[in-house]
Each structure stands twice: as structure tokens, then as C-alpha cells.
Amino acid sequence: MQQQQAGGSETEVTWGDQQNINQFGRLNNRFHDLEEEIKAAKESNENLEDAGNELILTDEEVVRFQIGEVFAHVPRDEVETRIEEMKELTTKNLERLEQEKVSILSQMAELKKVLYAKFGDSINLEED
């Protein structure tokens, strides 16, 4: 985010404006963090999905299930329930993150309207 400007005429910047700019900066930072978190959540969701599918195909009764650093020998049906539980958790987490992203984007759009209305071309709120 950039606020550098080269215009000659000065629009007065109030503390309220500054707070809006700060808020926009915070939202923008959070937005980028969220993108990362969503990517990670999607990945773990896919991994669990794959693991679940593999489990259906296998005919082994006991599978090695990673807990911490070790692979425990766990009966297949128990692993199935554990994976289901984990999947539920990551899906919920993903939904929460997606919702936060929507809310952040709409707040950013609001602030953009306010700030562009006041400063026009003197402010740049777009990514490079």
C-alpha cells in the first residue's frame, strides 16, 4: 500500500483520515495473512480427503496413523472416524476464514470509497 503522492495542492489530513488510513492498512495486512491461512487450510483439507479415499481402497485391517512424530498402528475403522473428525474441523476452520475474508474485503471497499472521495488521485490504495 502506498500513500506517496506528488500533487502540489495539499488536502488537509485530519486525525480521522489518518485513522481510516491506518485501519485500511490493518485490513490489508490481515487480508494477506488470511490468503495464506486459507491456502494452508485448503491444503490440509485436501490431504485429509486423499487419506480418506485411500483408506476406502485399502484392504489392510490395521493402518499406520501419524500421531505427533510416530506412526501408530490403529485399526482402520478408528482411523476413519478420526479422519472424519479432523476433516470436519478443518472444513469449519476454512469456512470461518472465508467468511472473515468476505467481511474484510467489504470493509476495505467501504474505506476506499471514503478515502478516494476525500483525497482523489492524491492517494493510492491499490496493490502494485
Binding site: 500513500q3 503522492q5 500533487g7 495542492s9 495539499e10 489518518q18 488510513i21 491506518n22 490493518r26 495486512n29
Partner: peptide, 27 residues
């Protein structure tokens, strides 16, 4: 971190405004 970034933003805005003010004065 949020507090710190607010301070960075404030300082950047101040730098831009002092610079602009100077350009304006020269003109």
C-alpha cells in the same frame, strides 16, 4: 505488530505531507 504498523503508516503519511508541503512552498 498492529500498533507498530499503525505508527509506520502515520510516519509514511507525514513524510508524504511534509514533502508535498515543501513542493508547494517552492512553487
Amino acid at each position: 505488530l498492529q500498533f507498530l504498523r499503525d505508527q509506520v503508516t502515520i510516519t509514511q503519511v507525514t513524510v508524504a505531507r511534509i514533502y508535498n508541503w515543501d513542493v508547494h512552498q517552492r512553487r
